[in-house]
Amino acid sequence: MTLALRPALPADVEIIQAQRDAMFLDMGSPAERVAQAHAASLKWFREALAGGSFSGVLAEQGGQVVGGAGVIWQSLPPSPRSLPVTRAYLLNVYVQPSARGQGLARRMLQHLLAECARRGVETVSLHASEAGRSVYEGLGFTPTNELRLTLGETP
């Protein structure tokens, strides 16, 4: 079957959110917590996609969406590591189980990285699951010194 990549459109927010929910469940997040985040996340993606602060790519096979990935366009002050003010944060890289093992995640990421390059982005970051780490490292991503503090009650 032919595989095609296409831009995510505002009408695709339900698909994007369903993939995001499935991704978190695959990574072991509690189903109750995923459900609690669903509506607010759906609203965020609807607004961000319409406003241009989020872009996505969807993979279709036989007319069905089988994968997706996205990027948040961040505006941050210039630094010695990145003079341009636009940086990219990749997220929601998901391929449904029946389509895994065909290099689809890599193709979607290459597509988004090409868009980053077109926009003059120098710094691209993401948080990797163990399942995706080898794909990201194969594209040149390296671990950084980022630290995290979680405030409030979050499992």
Results as ranks from 00 to 15, higher is better:
residue 45 F to I: 11
residue 130 E to R: 15
residue 111 H to Q: 13
residue 40 A to W: 12
residue 144 T to R: 12
residue 68 G to W: 00
residue 47 E to M: 13
residue 121 V to I: 15
residue 32 E to V: 07
residue 27 M to W: 07
residue 83 L to A: 11
residue 73 W to G: 08
residue 115 E to Y: 05
residue 73 W to L: 15
residue 36 Q to C: 10
residue 32 E to T: 03
residue 70 G to H: 02
residue 106 R to W: 00
residue 129 S to R: 14
residue 113 L to W: 00
residue 67 G to A: 06
residue 28 G to V: 13
residue 93 V to K: 03
residue 148 R to Q: 12
residue 134 S to T: 13
residue 134 S to R: 10
residue 131 A to G: 09
residue 58 L to N: 01
residue 100 R to A: 09
residue 75 S to L: 14
residue 113 L to D: 05
residue 56 G to W: 01
residue 103 G to N: 00
residue 75 S to T: 14
residue 75 S to Q: 15
residue 144 T to I: 09
residue 97 P to Y: 05
residue 90 L to G: 03
residue 84 P to W: 14
residue 137 E to R: 04
residue 66 V to S: 08
residue 25 L to S: 06
residue 80 P to D: 04
residue 62 G to K: 03
residue 41 S to H: 13
residue 105 A to F: 00
residue 149 L to H: 14
residue 127 H to R: 14
residue 78 P to M: 10
residue 136 Y to H: 05
residue 66 V to W: 05
residue 89 Y to F: 12
residue 44 W to V: 13
residue 114 A to R: 07
residue 60 E to Y: 04
residue 90 L to M: 02
residue 107 R to C: 03
residue 85 V to W: 15
residue 51 G to W: 01
residue 138 G to H: 13
residue 49 L to A: 09
residue 62 G to H: 04
residue 135 V to S: 03
residue 106 R to E: 06
residue 141 F to G: 04
residue 129 S to I: 11
residue 151 L to N: 10
residue 135 V to A: 06
residue 152 G to M: 08
residue 140 G to W: 09
residue 78 P to D: 11
residue 99 A to Y: 00
residue 23 M to K: 08
residue 121 V to Y: 05
residue 135 V to T: 09
residue 129 S to Y: 12
residue 111 H to C: 12
residue 79 S to A: 11
residue 93 V to T: 08
residue 78 P to Q: 13
residue 42 L to N: 07
residue 117 A to E: 11
residue 101 G to S: 01
residue 53 S to F: 00
residue 113 L to K: 02
residue 65 V to W: 03
residue 110 Q to P: 06
residue 38 H to D: 02
residue 129 S to K: 14
residue 88 A to T: 03
residue 50 A to P: 09
residue 80 P to W: 07
residue 109 L to I: 10
residue 37 A to M: 12
residue 133 R to P: 04
residue 132 G to K: 07
residue 67 G to S: 03
residue 77 P to G: 02
residue 150 T to C: 15
residue 142 T to A: 11
residue 79 S to H: 11
residue 44 W to L: 14
residue 114 A to Q: 06
residue 62 G to N: 08
residue 75 S to E: 15
residue 73 W to S: 14
residue 26 D to W: 00
residue 150 T to V: 15
residue 138 G to V: 14
residue 148 R to W: 15
residue 135 V to R: 14
residue 114 A to V: 03
residue 91 L to G: 10
residue 23 M to H: 10
residue 52 G to A: 03
residue 31 A to M: 12
residue 50 A to E: 10
residue 40 A to D: 13
residue 64 Q to H: 09
residue 27 M to C: 07
